[in-house]
Design a protein around this nucleic acid. Sequence first.
DNA 1: GCCATACTACGGAAGAACCCGTAGACACGA
DNA 2: TCGTGTCTACGGGTTCTTCCGTAGTATGGC
Lengths: 125, 125
Amino acid sequence: MDDPLYFPPRELAVMSILWRTGGATVAEVKDALEENLAYTSVLSALQTLEEKGYVTHEAEGRAYRYRALVDAEKAGDSALARVRESIFQGSAEKLFAHFVSDDKLSRSELERMRRLLADRLGDEP
Amino acid sequence: MDDPLYFPPRELAVMSILWRTGGATVAEVKDALEENLAYTSVLSALQTLEEKGYVTHEAEGRAYRYRALVDAEKAGDSALARVRESIFQGSAEKLFAHFVSDDKLSRSELERMRRLLADRLGDEP
DNA sequence: GCCATACTACGGAAGAACCCGTAGACACGA
DNA sequence: TCGTGTCTACGGGTTCTTCCGTAGTATGGC
């Protein structure tokens, strides 16, 4: 097991952009962020993340391109485990039940989920 | 839509106990917490949560009994939405796929999930 | 060469989160 | 009555997070 891996809100937003893009410059991150932050604020966030070891950078022309060092899957593991544990009393089923009860899920999404679950059940004789 | 509802780690741990128990005194929260905090630290956390409006208290004997004012479902909504949005690129399916790929899920759990999903699909003709 | 532009490094302010000690109130038993 | 134990209120210290301004460096156009 690895350390629990936790990102405060703003840092998570930045990581999210790095995961989506696969790597981004400060300016790109700034543009992708919903809130309108100063350039240096974005830079600071990235430097903080780098200091923590979650991110690295390499020169690209005059600028740096930042890249995530932890992958989204790992972060997803930690986040879902935390949600399951603290909000759904440790029960994966409770989490699941709540997840699929979301009205905004389309029928086709639900059907693809059913398919996924069927596959998952099939692979374990 | 309500406000996004977010709890930093320690406060989430405290809320978790209130959700599980339905209400608890400071001493009970302290005992239930994994980390060994000073009594007053736990009290502080509860007072902070109360100030934010997530918690209330009523006298019970000489002590206060604290109770959550937001329910776990709402917190679950926010938490899952945040995870889906920032880690799984907004895709409920990606989240789901990752969720069911967890090795620690037992076959019976998975089967109960399948049932739940089937019911959910059935209720929408 | 000189200027504007784009970028990073650095430092620091302000607030949030976290943690606890001390003081005071209150009840109970000796 | 006099501790003793349990509880809350209050205040303060420390670290983390967020945010940005200033200064310095390099690049490319003129």
